[in-house]
Write a protein that binds this DNA or RNA. Structure first.
Lengths: 163, 163
DNA sequence: TATGTATGAATGAATG
DNA sequence: CATTCATTCATACATA
């Protein structure tokens, strides 16, 4: 049969980056989702995949992702379309009519480049520890980090300096 | 105080609540992970953090989480060998036209900050052991950011088996 | 053709 | 340590 990937408007013959669920697959997936099987086990995933694969190319990864996305989407929609939440829920300038503000996203880096680039002369203080680190001593204690994994406390990177 | 994360351009960009490792940080982390150190101890975490913090905002928690995620992910792809093995007629699914392009390109101002750091990394004598991968193409451990989404059909779990 | 929207996919963080 | 959730990005896809 025709490649399910390029079955629609496709003109992409070189790259199948994103799995595109066929209507049939979508129908099945939605039905299963509707069953209440929110987070299917791996076994279920396999079974579902086995079913869907007959209707087009698909992998367990796709199925898994689909369910994850589906659930997340539903949830987000719920609390986003509600009347109004006077709770402590602060939305980061979220759902604007556009919503897709990621067009100019700057998620990563953007540190004090001019700064950290210059202090480069001292960038290898004790990194050699991993060269000789043969200490099988895992975690002497039980604490994973400095106290709890919530946050060290000293440097809170996620500082909602919103105001 | 000023958040190091958004202290760059000085715009009103919303601070990312999620830590995004800079290419440099990623390289270092990869190297350490590749050393076979596996799960670093608390002290190691601190050491690593001390090193990485010079290359951008980061906390011990981030480092810890990173290793945890990395470990889990590696394992996932490892245990993908049972009743699968359908066909692997996929071309080199690894090397994509572009690797971590998202890490280096999404804005238009291009501060070249990380770029400089990258260069500095190479020239660092002490960090030579972890600077061996100056060539992005020769990146040995970029399996996590490869672009082999999911069009396999023969893989098992929701993990992108990479081989 | 370019822009916008929808959704799959990647990853960091949280939880058990 | 294993699994799941939440957030964000990139790309498929629809429309102007």
């Amino acid at each position: 049969y025709c490649d399910p990937l390029m079955a629609s408007a496709g003109h992409k013959i070189t790259a199948r980056q994103r799995w595109t669920p066929t209507p049939v697959q979508l129908q099945i997936l939605e039905r299963i989702f509707d069953q209440g099987t929110g987070t299917p086990s791996k076994q279920n995933i396999k079974e579902i995949t086995s079913e869907l694969i007959q209707h087009g190319q698909i992998s367990e990864t796709n199925v898994y992702n689909w369910f994850q996305n589906r659930r997340a989407r539903s949830k987000r929609k719920q609390l986003g379309s509600s009347s109004n939440n006077a709770e402590s829920e602060q939305e980061t300038e979220v759902e604007s009519p556009n919503e897709k503000k990621n067009l100019l996203s700057q998620q990563n880096h953007a540190p004090s480049a001019e700064d950290l680039c210059f202090q480069n002369l001292e960038i290898s203080p004790e990194l050699h520890f991993l060269s000789v680190m043969s200490n099988p001593n895992a975690y002497d204690g039980d604490e994973h980090l400095s106290g709890k994994m919530g946050m060290p406390g000293n440097y809170n990177i996620y500082d909602q300096a919103e105001d």
